[in-house]
Each structure stands twice: as structure tokens, then as C-alpha cells.
Computed example of a mutant assay.
Amino acid sequence: MDYRHLGQSGLRVPALSFGAGTFGGSGPLFSNWGSTTVDEARDLVDLCLEAGVTLFDTADVYSAGQSEEILGAALKGRREQAIISTKIALPMGDGPGDWGASRGRLISSTEAALARLGTDRIDILQLHAFDSHTPVEEILTTVDMLIRTGKVLHWGVSNYPGWALMQLLERADRHGVPKPVVHQVYYSLIGRDYEWELMPLGAREGVGAMIWSPLGWGRLTGKLRRGAPPPAVSRLHETADMGPPVEERILFDVIDLLVELSAETGKTVPQLAINWLLAQPTVSTVIIGARTRDQLIDNLGATGWSLTAEQLARLTRVSEREAAYPASQYRRQEGFSRLFAPMVRAAAIGA
């Protein structure tokens, strides 16, 4: 397994990490993701650790805490072999104190996550969503306190707007407190918005990307084909509208090329889609999810080899779409690649 630095931190993480969103399976969304039990989770964790996948990602909202509980139970007795990442700040109830990133909420949510995970520390804590109500200094001083007490080792955000992440970085630098080193983002061959603003920001500021849904909300698993309906058994029937949208033209153009490259390389469609991501700037780790051993084994096969430069370019071209303003303006400039490349080289993320 290839290991990379998590942004500009000293923490080295595997190129592939495991997402525990399928653990538990309660609620209208997560019940469609999976219902992995403790025994099943322990088996999947075994496979991950054997392959060098030591980073496990979860969140308090995943099945209302069950995902953290099951992950903690599956890691019992081998906590020191694992890097645990969890996320807080999304609503966990209907009360006024059940959502957001206030000082009290961050402290109580971290304590609750530690208890559910059965650990004394969280290796990577992420704010799961942007909270416009809580002052930046309140967030920073609270996270600093959690780090000083050893309950959190590294921190970051997830699904943040670029300006809000930049504000955290600037204020953290100003006050001399730990800066966020990771941004958990959606990025896939059929969802490349991350490149427009957040990738240049991450490269410039040393924020590594932890990629969620690398297979485009289950659309790049190899089961979809142009002109054919989704398979009879597919979570897309229930969850397609809950995930990031995708233009049908781009979706099937990408699928067609992945199928073609699969025949050329002997790799599966998911392996190709994940391998393309691993070659992109700022990507520290790609989160893979699996409900079964076979799915996990297939996803693990995305590493240990590389697409050729020509194959990477073909996938990049077929998945390209017009960027939103203002990225649409500067990306059209002839010198765009020359402007962007130094940021990526200077960051040296993933080296």
C-alpha cells in the first residue's frame, strides 16, 4: 500500500482508506447503504489491515452513532494498528444543542464519539458541515483545546466552501493554533467540481483531500451500461436523488471509456475510476466503501499499478465539463496550466 502525508501534517495515511458508512444501517439513507454487523465489520477490517488500509472513516450521524460503535467493536484489541477518522457537527436530534459547531457541541460530540468508538483519542476529527452561526475563533480555540488535551490529534473539515476553509486557515495562522490539514470532499470522474476552487486552495495551503464517493454515488461500480436499466438490485433505486447530480451524457461517456479501458488493462471499472483519482493533485486518500468481501477485495485492487499517461488523459478529457464562474474564466486562459502547476509542485501533497 502506498502511504501519503495528510496535507501538510506529519501523519502518513494509506492511499486507500475504508469508509464505515455501511456499518449499522438505520434511517432512510443509511439503511440503503448497508447494515453491516459487528462480526461482518470485523471481517472487513481484517481484510483492510492485511492490505495496509489502516485508516477508517466514520461519522456520528452514520446510523445515529451505530457506525462508530460497530467500528470501535471491530477494532477492539488492535486500536494501535488503526487511524480513526470521524466527523461531527451535523444534526443528531431536533434540540437547539443538537447541531452545529459551538464550543459546547464540539466538546460533547467529541466525548460522545470517543465513548462510542471505545478509544481515548480521535486521530482525525472533521467538521462535517459549515456552521455559519459559530464564530471562527470559537471553533479554533475549542479544537486547539481538544488537541492540547490529547483527545484529537489532527483536524479538518468536510464539504466546506472555499472561502470558509480559507478563513479557518488564515485565523488559525494568526492565532498560532493548529490549522486544518484535511478536507473531505466529493470527487469522482463524474463529479469534478472539486478541481475548480478547492483543489487550488488545497495545493496552495497544504490541505490534503480525503475523497468520499469515488465511484460517483455508486454509478461507477460497473453495473450501469448505456441503454440498459439499472440492475434490479441496486441502491441507486432508492438513493440516486440523494446524491450529487450528474449529466447523463457525461455519465455514459465515462462509463463507455471505462469499459473500453477495462478490456485493455484487465482492471475492473471501479479499479480504473479509483486509480484515476489517486493520480490527481492534492489527493491524500480515497475512501472506499464495501458491504461484502468481494466488493472490498475488488476496490483494494485499485492500487499497486498505474494508468498510463495516455489513459489518464483520455479519462480526463471524456469527463471534463465547463467549470462554473469564476473558474470558467481563468481555466480558459492559455496560461492556466502554467499558473496552477507551481501550486501543486510546491504543496508536494501525496509525495
Rank of each mutant, 00 (worst) to 15 (best):
Y186N: 14
Y186W: 13
S188G: 12
L189N: 00
L189S: 00
L189I: 04
I190T: 09
R192S: 09
R192Q: 07
D193I: 08
E195Y: 01
E195G: 04
W196E: 12
E197L: 13
L198G: 07
L198I: 11
L198K: 10
L198H: 06
M199E: 11
M199F: 00
M199P: 05
P200E: 08
L201Q: 12
L201K: 13
L201S: 14
L201E: 15
G202M: 11
G202H: 10
A203G: 13
R204T: 15
E205L: 14
G206P: 09
G206A: 15
G206N: 14
V207W: 15
V207I: 15
A209W: 05
M210Y: 05
I211Q: 14
I211T: 06
W212G: 11
W212F: 15
S213N: 12
S213P: 12
S213C: 02
S213H: 07
P214M: 13
P214R: 13
P214V: 12
L215I: 07
L215R: 10
L215K: 04
L215W: 01
L215C: 07
G216A: 04
G218F: 03
G218N: 04
G218C: 06
R219H: 01
R219D: 04
R219M: 07
R219Q: 07
L220G: 10
L220K: 04
T221D: 00
T221K: 05
T221G: 12
T221R: 01
G222F: 00
K223I: 11
K223D: 11
L224C: 03
L224G: 05
R225F: 01
R225H: 13
R225I: 03
R225M: 01
R226V: 04
R226D: 02
R226M: 09
G227T: 06
A228H: 11
A228V: 05
P229I: 10
P229Q: 09
P229E: 10
P230Q: 08
P230N: 06
P231I: 02
P231S: 09
P231C: 06
A232D: 13
V233P: 03
V233W: 06
R235Y: 00
L236E: 06
L236R: 11
H237K: 12
H237M: 03
E238C: 05
E238Q: 14
T239R: 05
T239F: 02
T239D: 02
T239M: 04
A240I: 02
D241P: 14
D241F: 14
D241Q: 15
D241T: 14
M242T: 08
M242R: 12
M242N: 10
G243A: 08
G243M: 03
P244W: 01
P244T: 07
P244R: 10
P245L: 04
P245Y: 02
V246I: 06
